[in-house]
Amino acid sequence: MNIGIKIFYAAISVVVATVYGLTLGGIVRKMYARVHGRYGPPVWQLFLDIIKNHGKRVGISHGIMYYLGPVFRLAGGLGTYLFIPVIYGSVVFSNFSVAGDLLLVMYFIFFGQLGMALGAGEGGHPYSPIGIARGLAQMTTFEVPFSLAVIAVAIQYQTLNITTIVAAQQGSFLNWTLFTNPFAVIAAMISLLGMNMHSPFSIVLAPQEIPIGPPIEMNSSFLATLQTNRGLFTAAKLVLFMNLFFGGATNIFIMIAKTFLIYLSSVIVGASFPRFRPEQSMRFFLKWPTIIGIISIVFIAYF
């Protein structure tokens, strides 16, 4: 296919994913508000926030790396998203999945946070390195069960290509990894809780103790870029999990239904549990999810 058309399709897909991710964020805020007994902000509040931040008249900068921080973060989100086939068999939503595999996507999940660390460090505020340190430490620990689950999946399907993994799960819902390899799915879903940074693992962004964490010095358009990335990155992660463990999607409605349910699991946990301290969350990730992840590899390799 012509590369120009492919880029055009990928752009459409990115816009759809960003809008979807931000709307999802709005819905989740509303759900949290209802749990608190509040009316809650409108669903489109996140869009208004982004437009407002872009519309700020002044934006203070601290140097070149400060500019590059949000750019790296957005590049991380884009990179994660662009190498995942969103809808199986669709031309528009297949992105560049032929060019990269699962390991590249996993690298991009980490990449954004590292870029953010460089950018926020130059802001010079003492709280942003604390947020970064907590974020990277927590990220390293939840990557462990996730990597183990991915290794189990790779052993199971004998490939790292996401499209092939999705293709192998088609047919009946009993072909999903959820039923063929349940231990890997459990380990990965627990690490998704950490990835989404909802309540038990939200210490990275702790708004009270270390005001808002890494993006504390970010303002105006820088912050708007980070917010846009948050929408895109959420969508990318959910689509990746849907592809790996829940049989992918053949049209956009199935995609929306499945990703919404996957996200709902971490919202339910987030609305019902208080927050872990950093060392508690790290110990948690290195204990049970890791053991389940190892069991999943043993299970798939020998049984």
Binding site: K56, I212, M218
Partner: peptide, 8 residues
């Protein structure tokens, strides 16, 4: 917002 940079 906990930081003046982001508040309006």
């Amino acid at each position: 917002r906990p930081t003046p940079r982001q508040a309006s």
